[in-house]
Write a protein that binds this DNA or RNA. Structure first.
Lengths: 100, 100
DNA sequence: TTATAATATGTGCATATGTTCATATACTAA
DNA sequence: TTAGTATATGAACATATGCACATATTATAA
């Protein structure tokens, strides 16, 4: 038998994860990082967006432990850091491709 | 070989679904409806929230086809209407319970 | 040292969001 | 009809969000 109860802390955590995935820019960033590690400028160029906007979003994602950073000289290379959330996103993307 | 391209329409759709799941109230509503069909007042009482707030959120969820409505006399009974999204939510809830 | 490059950060702004309040609507029952 | 109940809706409000701009920080290279 399952326990259906949910405390507010768990719910807040879940909503935070889904909120991270609820923005088109963050989806694009994560989907790109799923394919390959990228620097900030690479991401900004790929998505045709301001470097500052990308940097802010990467900070947001890093704070949630969804991405990690590797510094080399002046460059910051970002890559996924949460296997479960990345699978959640990629499976949803695949499902959307096959249905819409 | 996979196609990694994603058009903006698909991304907007995905972000809309995740946005629906990014609010604690909507998570609680959907999780409750996953267990059993409920009227608006039932939901409001269970979540200890304003009837109007629940009604607004149900309209939001219905517009996205995540819930459906069954009218009986003056009552509106709501239940899930998207198997895939409900599974997405419930699996994430289960995962959170077992890890956090 | 100075200049340059990559990234990070603070601020301001327009817009979006979630809620409450008051009220409207739909339906029932007396 | 009228009163009562359940739900829906519109408006207003405080807060959150995502972005651009300017600038700061960090590290390199000349």
């Amino acid at each position: 038998m399952h326990d259906h109860s949910l405390d507010d802390q768990q719910i807040d955590h879940i909503s935070q994860i889904f909120k991270a995935l609820s923005d088109p820019t963050r989806i694009k960033v994560l989907h790109l990082l799923f394919q390959r590690e990228c620097s900030v400028n690479e991401i900004a160029e790929q998505l045709n967006m301001n470097q500052s906007a990308i940097s802010h979003q990467l900070k947001y994602l890093k704070q949630l432990h969804l991405v990690k950073k590797r510094k080399v000289k002046t460059m910051s290379y970002y890559s996924p850091d949460d296997y479960h959330v990345m699978n959640l996103l990629e499976q949803t993307i695949e499902h959307t491709k096959h249905t819409s």
